[in-house]
Structures are given as C-alpha cells and as structure tokens.
C-alpha cells in the first residue's frame, strides 16, 4: 500500500510537470502574437468596393479620404498616426463608423451596406494571399 502511494506520488510529479509545460506552451503561443510588434512600416491601406480595389494609401502618411459611391453614398476615412478609422458615413447601420480604429496587418473595417472593405496590408502578406487565394 505504501509503495503504491509512493508510485502514485511519483507519477503525480510527472503529470503536473508535463501538464504544466503544455499549459505554459498554450499560454505562450496565445501571448506571442499579442505582444510581438507588428511591422506596419511598409503597410498600405487598401480600399475595396465590391471586391475591386478602388484606393491604396500609405499607412504611415496621415490622410483623409472620402469615398463616394455612384448613388451618392459616402464613407469618410481617416488615416492618422498609423491607425485607420471611418469617421463618417451615410450607411444605414453605421457599423463601420462605430468600429474601433485598426492598426495591425490583416485587420479590416467593413461597411456592408456600401460593400466597402478597408484593410491594412503588408506587402509580403499580400503575396501569400495571392498564392493561397
């Protein structure tokens, strides 16, 4: 009985060690994408309407652009300090205006009523997207 108890304790040590390592690994793999500095120095703000690119601007240069649709609808986009935001739009749901500003590669703001997609693209990443498209 005592040897059995010892065996149990010995195994518990191994169990705790290995499960601890796995949990630490899970935590680290979750943490790393959150803390690593995303290199957005060469990134561009790409604007698509209905899937077609209608504008491409540098993320690092401050800019205010208005996108006017054929039916008179508009979205006002503000690029400042490496972040992008839709400041004004006449779409019915106003979701794009309410969405927080984006600043990382791959993030996007979408205005569904106007079929407008605003994404931040790094030059390398768009290569990969083109391949796996």
């Amino acid at each position: 009985m005592i040897t059995e108890g010892k065996e149990f304790l010995k195994k518990i040590k191994g169990d705790v060690l290995i499960l601890g390592i796995i949990l630490a690994l899970a935590f680290l793999t979750w943490l790393i994408p959150h803390i690593t500095e995303d290199d957005t120095s060469g990134s561009e703000v790409v604007v698509l309407r209905d899937g077609n690119e209608i504008g491409c601007y540098s993320l690092s240069a401050d800019n205010i652009i208005t996108f006017q649709g054929t039916d008179g609808s508009y979205n006002l986009i503000l690029i400042s300090g490496g972040t992008v935001k839709v400041t004004d739009a006449d779409c019915p749901d106003q979701l794009c205006v309410r969405q927080r500003s984006i600043s990382k590669n791959g993030e996007s703001i979408i205005c569904l009523p106007h079929k407008l997609v605003i994404t931040i693209d790094s030059p390398e990443e768009s290569d990969i997207d083109a391949v796996t498209n």
Binding site: K11, G14, D15, I18, I22
Partner: peptide, 29 residues
C-alpha cells in the same frame, strides 16, 4: 512515470500538433 490520464491528454495535444504540421505544409500560411 505518468498516469494514464496525462498520457491520454498529451496524446490529444500531439494529435492536433501532428495535424497542424501537415496543414502547414498544405496551405503554407
């Protein structure tokens, strides 16, 4: 040196690890 429970848990994790590895070679992203 491990209980069956832990062995199974690691097995589950490694199963996903192996699949992810193949998935990486397939989609290369």
């Amino acid at each position: 040196r491990f209980h069956l429970l832990t062995i199974s848990a690691v097995g589950g994790v490694m199963h996903n690890a192996g699949q992810l590895l193949v998935a990486y070679f397939v989609v290369k992203t």
